[in-house]
Nucleic acid binder design. Sequence first.
RNA 1: GGGGAAGUGGCGGAAUCGGUAGACGCAUCGGACUUAAAAUCCGAAGGGCUCUAAGCCCGUGGGGGUUCGACUCCCCCCUUCCCUACCA
Length: 864
Amino acid sequence: MNNRYEPAEIEPRWQGVWEETRAFRALNPGDAGFDPEQPKYYVLDMFPYPSGAGLHVGHPMGYIGSDIVSRRKRMEGYNVLHPMGYDAFGLPAEQYAITRGVHPAQSTAKNVETFRRQLRSLGLSYDWSREFSTCDPSYYRWTQWIFARLYDLGLAYRTEVPVWWCEELKTVLANEEVIQGRSERGGHLCLRRPLSQWMLKITEYADRLLDDLETVDWPASVKTMQREWIGRSEGADVIFPIDGFEASLTVFTTRPDTLWGATFMVVAPEHALLEEITTESDREAVQDYVEQASRKSDLERTDLAKVKTGVFTGRYAINPVVDPDTEESRIPIFVADYVLASYGTGAIMAVPAHDERDFEFAKKYNLNIHEVVKPPEGEPGLSEGVCFSGEGTAIHSGPIDGLASPAAKLKTIELLRKRNLGDARVSYRLRDWLFSRQRYWGEPFPVLHRKDGSHLRVPDADLPVELPEMEDFTPADDGAAPLSRASDWVVASDPETGDTVRRDTDTMPGWAGSCWYYLRFMDPQNDEAPFSPEAQEYWGNVDLYIGGVEHAVLHLLYARFWHKVLYDCGLVSTKEPFKRLFNQGLLTAFAFKDSAGRTIPVDEVEERDGTHVKSDDGTEVEQVVAKMSKTLRNVVNPDDVVAQHGVDTFRIYEMFMGPLGESKPWNTRDVPGSRRFLEDVWKLFVDPSGSEPIRPHLREAVEGVLEGEALVLERALNRALKRIEESFETFKFNTAIAAMMEFKNVASKCRQVVTRSQAERFVCAMAPFAPHIAEELWSRLGHAEGIVRAPWPHHDEAYLEEEEYELVVQVNGKLRARVRAPKEADKVLLEELARGAAQKYLAGQSIRRAVVVPGRLVNFVLGS
RNA sequence: GGGGAAGUGGCGGAAUCGGUAGACGCAUCGGACUUAAAAUCCGAAGGGCUCUAAGCCCGUGGGGGUUCGACUCCCCCCUUCCCUACCA
């Protein structure tokens, strides 16, 4: 028998065994051997987007973490669902296909294959029988089916909206995919353009999406981000009559109590009434302004935000609470692009005394500023020349004078309601979800368009509406969807009348597939339903969801929305999809900066005498931490690490780097340390120069009382087991590995004393982290059954207490001595011991006080 | 501008409830083994001062405070990273 530690031999062998024995298969209700009494645990990774570049070492960070949890849960007796798949539809896949001139179906299949190979090589305990891609027709059939439910509920609707159009990508993008006027992917300039689109009424679920955040165990920061994204604000609609005009102007405000201070109004350049209300003499100026605003990208609109601009429309509104006989009741209406068409009503009442933006605008255009809220004592207000936007006491406001802001708000709303001039209203920052793309690589909508402009759903029985094969899938210059050119495919017959109808030619956005994949994993082969009620009932929701913070808002919000819709349809029994969420940290890498602050690629830098210098001219550079990127040439491929050291080393290193939740830099230099640890563990149990599978003294269990070194070892093991246990609470697996290393260090000094029981418990505790070596050692220890379902070892408190401990002796808070103290020593004895130990510091001094903390220290406070 | 997270040796990072700062590992330096090197094994090591022996001082971004005692709690400031960006 070869007794050297050879990961290249061990690892593929055990991976083969796991596959043959289907070691990680999760059993569903109805499967042979399913035990309804066994507790379930569902651990999910955010599935990857299979890009052409393959995995880099950052991807597996979270996967390894979730795998460790899965493996331990299995050892604790849970029926663990731990699946993996691919988020394969969407823009990036299509862009990649276009730049390479390959069909997206082909490039995606190839990328998926690379990802699968790499993931499999990492020894992750996925139930591979549940694997799928979102672009599989057998999957997207049900994505379409769920869309049909949304359609039936009236939650999907078509409307003409000004949408973000990206000229470069020839597509429409959602608000969330446009950052500062540029596409999130690729950074291309975008502009707004009206198009007929599918929208999903996520706003209808805003309150539930907000309220149910209370029920999930998620990082507070993610909850906050979601709350802010939904942006619920309570306020009121107020109707302002327009002077000499039939129509009125409605605004939304969160401060109805400041109504008496509204001295002008502003409408967005896109406001529907703008053209009508503009007077002849001002028409030209207004039209100019509107045109300018439409040409501005949002980038410019925000960048120039510091300087507000606007134009008078020539028209006046009437402040409904100001005496109509006074000139003050007539307030001018402006158009300005600091008011957004898409929020509230697209128009505001401007209260310059109590709103920073209005204040700025009023100062620039010399408009009236009328104070109606007195700031609380000590806070500066208008008299100090500052705009006070907080809450205070109403003044100069007739019927609400003297009321505190919250009461003033309520009373104003009551007044408005009585006079039919407005009412309380809640407004959200969240907009409905723009759900269609004029692209090829996505789920086609299961919708047919009749000649009369009406539309109907494709019957469920006819799903999936398969994506047609197309040679040329590039978007048309005019923005028409590629599918509209699939002339055979587009034509269909009306299921009711048999007339000719046209298929909808848009496709769903990339987010669609990831909205419910966690449900499909529960029952992935079902071809009668997206998942069976039994499977859903059993698996419930995801117990632990691990992924990056970049999905804190969109993916998680969209998935929660769909989940709630399915809940309303009676298809799922839980209100929330993900019980606990954990964000793994970003994996960074070292890079270098020269004195001018330019980043220098790693391969142009070398180390000389402890400093880093540029290879070509020897100038000193500074080491910094940056994201892994092609340009910095600091990307590390897991394949290389695995080839050199094996998967177990890779897994141990990734977890040993630091807490899973924190971002930390990869350093190839450190990897051999993890390899050495595994080599040492191996040698602890296997004699590399011998031929026995295991060190002979470990072959049989020895009975008897532990004493001497054996007892020391037992204590060390229990300490380690406890620390490993604790590491699962906070995902600080680095401390678990440190604990294993400490045990290994102690045990290596007295190898012959290690008992079989200790070896077994240690190997089991190590199994989730380094499963291959653990499995090999377990089998060498003579176990025919794999370690995958071996019992998880728990520590015994009895071995954590020692007879004696080291008592710290301080004088005036400074460490001066240490002394051995018996466990049960009382305060008097401890003080006495300490006094003896610190004698030389105490001689001739008067002790003012002695602080005795049993189990810890004694601190002598000397008199002055 | 707003919000959040974080600053500990040369590097990654430890440190339950406020109680021995620097666990564990990397790199480094000695020593052993070797013809030599690698690997391996043993050992040293926060910084400074110093009579080189026991010891002293300083040290968790900076400055204050609370406490017998602060990486940990409170106040102010600085830096870095992430998110967000006129939401009325």
